[in-house]
Design a protein around this nucleic acid. Structure first.
Lengths: 201, 201
DNA sequence: TGTACATCAGTGAACGCGCGTTCACTGATGTAC
DNA sequence: TGTACATCAGTGAACGCGCGTTCACTGATGTAC
């Protein structure tokens, strides 16, 4: 992923990412243990540290997959000839469905906290940015007056707003919320936002 | 807080909450250690477990304070005779400022994860609900057609959307964002949302 | 006023455990000559 | 074809540490008589 890899090494890496993905998907990020994944895969504990720098490195690879899958879902949601508003509404809907279907894995993307001073590698950030770009594109049609930087920023705001709503629902923090209300709530939010955004400020 | 307390016991409790608040404010939730707080206060490690059920219990008391302070800030932001839109805009602004000025403490409110099966006590949930109510109130003027339940829900959506944006900025996840852009971005978001919300769906 | 007893906050050494990471070693595979 | 050597993925016992929580004990304060 970050460098050219020999197939043998890559094989174990793959299996480890598979196993880690399964673990995180089932037990959440905090349910991922070095001993567990290696046992799942059937290799020695130490082998993990031959294949990856450390646990965080492994997690980053799982998260990268998740980001890729969402990006693919975004790409597949496009319809030719639809309006920018429609595209954004569809993206939001896609996002909500994806987050609901991949609760744990999606949470892991945001839960991973690299230790102080260590930042995500380029090959990872690239994936994140690609997602934002897919939102910024239809937004550009809505707001041709904004600069590329401002579009990126506004796309992130939109993304973050939807994300905030989904996350609050997912976490069901303190107050239970009926799951079937998420989609209409987000739809209302996005509709309001795109309508508002298309108007002048 | 949850029950009547003797003043002596209350005194140590107070000092512990003070110290914990300081620690969390400076080092974040994960920077709070039982040994540290008790050392800060100058009591024995074990005393913590006389005063509180456990660390989580202590944290809940710190978070409750934080919620109270935000609620007070909300209450203080009201102006008599302003429109519902204005009130909501002011609340959002207040929220952003509060979150920025209390980064760590505010993050702690959302970072605390009670162990499986243990839910936040009533005296805590009450505070959370009070915040939502302060948002639901002006919203009710904007949308007299919605039932109280739907208003609560919509208020939470609004709250969560703003929260999502602020959190993304605060965490500066992967991509740095100039801090001074938060306020205008949130303002644009809320303006769009209230404008959209006041219209029919 | 004095004695015996009970209560309970306060104490801190010790427990226990989870868990990431290391490291000396093995053994299969490849390379040189 | 054969021998010596190097490489490197794979191994898993052991290390180390952080840290929440417990518990037997102390001592001050309050109560009963």
């Amino acid at each position: 992923m970050e460098t050219q890899e020999k197939p043998g090494r890559d094989n174990l890496r793959h299996r480890l990412v598979d196993a880690a993905e399964r673990r995180i998907g089932e037990q959440g990020l905090s349910g991922l243990k070095a001993r567990q994944v290696t046992a799942d895969v059937g290799c020695a504990l130490g082998a993990l540290y031959n294949a990856f720098e450390d646990l965080d490195d492994l997690i980053l690879h799982v998260n990268a997959r998740t980001l890729d899958r969402l990006a693919a879902a975004f790409a597949g949601a496009h319809r030719a000839g639809e309006s920018a508003e429609e595209t954004i509404a569809v993206l939001a809907q896609t996002y909500v469905r994806f987050a609901l279907e991949n609760r744990m894995l999606w949470s892991a993307v945001f839960a991973l906290a690299l230790p102080e001073g260590r930042s995500a590698p380029d090959w990872y950030v690239v994936r994140y940015r690609a997602l934002i770009d897919q939102i910024a594109d239809p937004l550009a049609k809505l707001r041709p007056d904004l600069s590329p930087e401002e579009l990126q920023l506004r796309a992130r705001t939109l993304f973050a707003a939807v994300h905030g709503v989904v996350r609050l629902f997912l976490e069901a923090r303190f107050l239970a919320v009926p799951q079937d209300r998420i989609t209409p709530e987000v739809a209302a939010l996005v509709k309001a936002m795109t309508r508002g955004l298309s108007a002048a400020e």
